[in-house]
Write a protein that binds this DNA or RNA. Structure first.
Lengths: 242, 242
DNA sequence: TGATTATTGTCACAAATTGATACAATAATC
DNA sequence: GATTATTGTATCAATTTGTGACAATAATCA
């Protein structure tokens, strides 16, 4: 959220963290042919926000990102990448954070560090939906998946951040072969094609898609997956880098 | 430089700027078939560094980048884009900045804001070599072009930053059609091909290159350029968006 | 048990793109 | 006016992509 991300332990003065700098996360998952992202909600407010965090003074920026991601999802070794820095002054609006804190019984003074202007580094993560265990942060009361296709209103400029993350995901999809990070360990070609179609928001030709994916040489063909219906059983595949 | 970028007016305490955050610039130019970048050098030291700057509290991040770029090059309306945020703790080394300040007759105390850890947002810019008027910043004594192919040693992690910028330029080159920003207003097809070959560091086939560029529909053909030698004169082209 | 059904893997061919070469056109030089 | 080097474009091969077709085959159902 960058204007008001929440450290795991709420520091009264922000000591120990780099001032004015936050990390906002767009954490993508894929389930039932839908792209999902993780959002936090806050008790007694109707605010939804991206997971966010701060950087410890002793910490590398990218390590801070991995730490916060693990705190929200329980997952390590996840595909995680910077995509943009959000630094407009218009992002700064202390009202939502004040509302969140007050709903928690905290009455911040005017200059509370969480109410100041933040520049936010946007990261997007791709995770296996089935493996994540979403955990709220100290100020939020839930951390849940939401359909990207029907997103509710978000705090501050978080809608913009999601949009930019999605654009980056689309352009990175082929170049970096990262879609596999959104699927479970094994998957069918139809699963993979559906994922691509959902991300790119356009239909792809089945035959050409299969040919292209197989030609990449990054798929290991496993046993067939039976019991999928009254038809020929598809092979399962596993992603193998070189 | 991010660890030690220099504001136009050297503030004694960094007041008015966002703390701990800097902008580093990789400013590309192209001249005599060579890619160049702008580097600052410091009196009485043998240090070379990327141009850098800070963000005013009243300023948008991207506006700060445009402002600093204009301060170093005299140019506005320049292609300028974020490419990465450098936030490793290992970047932090107060020694070079202390040396620079001492060479200027300033003796900073141990906690001087310019000596603290900075996270740095990397921007790369593409400019017309012939139009830039490189201007040193208040702490440096020169701002000059250097051949990218034979770069001297740079301060801190600036070599890494340049490398990452170059990689981004390479992957963006075709996708965003940005090479033209490095050429003067009119150019021949050979000029353009040489630019592409230099950036990508690989030879391209003349015929195919011409066909591809013309098929993009973004080049306006102008008069021929005579007096180029004992051979057929090439057309001049101008870049026209849509 | 054998026909039915829906989906899969792969082939086949057309269309489009790219790679590589050839060649005529033509400014400047001699 | 011949020579030279480079340019613009045509040509054909090689490769990649678009599109449809078809046999194979699990599960279902008569």
């Amino acid at each position: 959220m960058s204007n008001q991300p929440i450290p795991e332990e709420i520091s009264p003065d922000g000591a120990g963290f780099l001032p004015g700098l936050a990390i906002d996360f767009v954490i993508f998952g894929f389930h039932q042919n839908q792209l999902k992202i993780l959002l936090l909600s806050y008790r007694n407010t109707d605010l939804l926000a991206l997971p966010a965090g701060f950087i410890q003074e002793t910490e590398n920026l990218n390590d801070a990102a991995r730490r916060v991601l693990a705190e929200r999802t329980g997952l390590y070794d996840i595909f995680l990448e910077q995509f943009y820095v959000f630094g407009d002054r218009s992002r700064h609006d202390p009202a939502p954070m004040r509302a969140i804190m007050e709903a928690k019984g905290i009455v911040p003074d005017e200059n509370h560090w969480l109410l100041r202007r933040f520049v936010s580094v946007g990261y997007y993560a791709l995770i296996d939906f089935t493996k994540a265990v979403p955990i709220p942060d100290p100020l939020s009361d839930s951390c849940e998946w939401y359909d990207l296709a029907s997103l509710p209103a978000l705090m501050l400029d978080h809608q913009t951040i999601v949009q930019k993350a999605l654009e980056t995901l689309r352009t990175d999809l082929d170049r970096k072969l990262i879609g596999f990070n959104l699927l479970s360990d094994t998957f069918t070609m139809a699963d993979l094609q559906c994922l691509y179609e959902t991300i790119l928001d356009q239909p792809l030709h089945r035959s050409g898609f299969q040919r292209k994916m197989l030609s990449l040489g990054i798929l290991e063909r496993l046993d067939k997956k039976f019991s999928g219906g009254a038809h020929k059983a598809p092979y399962l595949y596993r992603f193998v880098s070189n």
